[in-house]
Amino acid sequence: MRKLILAIGGSLVIAAPVATADVVGVGANVSYWDSDLSGKAGKNNDVVDVENDLDLESDTNANLSAYLEHPVPVLPNVRLNYTRIEQSGSGEVSTQFDLVSGDVDSDLDLSQFDVTLYYEVLDNWANLDLGVTARNLDGELIVREQATNGQVSKTEVDGVIPMGYLAARFDLPFTGVSVGGEANLISFDGDSVYDYNAYGQYELSLLQLRAGYRQISIDYEDSDDRLDIELGGPFVSAGLTF
């Protein structure tokens, strides 16, 4: 099982923070993401199209996040994020994929857990955060022949991936309205992961509401197993900030 290891310091330099929170701040939110899936999965030298051959459709896309910001300049702030994607479908594999062919049922289970350390570079009506993320990526694609006692193929990827982190937000003063975006990304030695979103936000007292668009692109190889997929679509979220 191959783990992707990268010295982020060679590609991302974080200067000493020039802005810090005045007080301790915490927040958390939950979001619903309506995503479409496209791309391919590979097993040894066999490849299957997850959209056209397997006809995978979204069942559950859940996202939870929480953060802690503090006024200590030297120490980074902390953000945690968990994304769970479950998709299933019934399709037809016209050519041999690993052990299976013909009519098949498929399930894709993909989870991501992020730990992000970041600094607030700007903290006024324009907000800018820079940092690094350690992402635990765990994915499994199971393809089963519909025939009685049919063959089963399992494609798995698992790794801890270091990524650069950037978040920007622009506030419209005295309205509670803002627009922004976030991105985690890495590209190294043929593997790449991109995860970004853009959103509009409205805050009312402690309540924070967001709506926007999120895109994830994963091109990751683990031994003889490979996922080269994209997920994208609108999301809505609700959270509390203190």
Results as ranks from 00 to 15, higher is better:
F97L: 10
R169W: 01
S205K: 14
A168E: 03
I186L: 04
S237A: 02
Y213L: 12
F97V: 09
E69Q: 07
V193D: 11
E92N: 13
M1S: 14
L204M: 08
D123H: 13
L137A: 11
E51T: 05
P234A: 08
S88Q: 06
S217Y: 10
N124K: 08
L227Q: 09
A66V: 08
K40F: 15
A7H: 09
T148M: 11
L117Q: 13
T241G: 06
G139D: 00
S58R: 12
V100M: 04
D34H: 04
D36I: 09
G232Y: 06
A62W: 15
K154E: 12
Q208A: 12
L117P: 15
D123G: 12
E120F: 07
V24A: 10
Q146M: 03
G102Y: 07
G139M: 00
S187Q: 10
R214V: 00
R210H: 04
G25L: 07
V50P: 02
T148Q: 10
P162W: 03
D191C: 07
R135L: 14
V177D: 05
V13D: 10
V143Y: 01
S153C: 03
G89R: 13
G131S: 10
H70G: 04
Y213D: 14
N45A: 15
T148C: 14
W125S: 09
D105R: 07
A7C: 11
A211L: 14
F97D: 11
P71Y: 02
P76T: 10
R214D: 04
R214T: 02
R210A: 05
L37Q: 01
D105W: 07
G131H: 09
D55H: 09
G176E: 06
D98M: 03
D129S: 13
Y165V: 09
E120H: 09
N127F: 02
L4P: 14
S178H: 02
D103P: 15
P73D: 01
Y199D: 04
L68C: 06
R144H: 04
Y194T: 14
G39R: 01
A66D: 09
T175R: 11
Q146W: 00
V50C: 07
S111V: 03
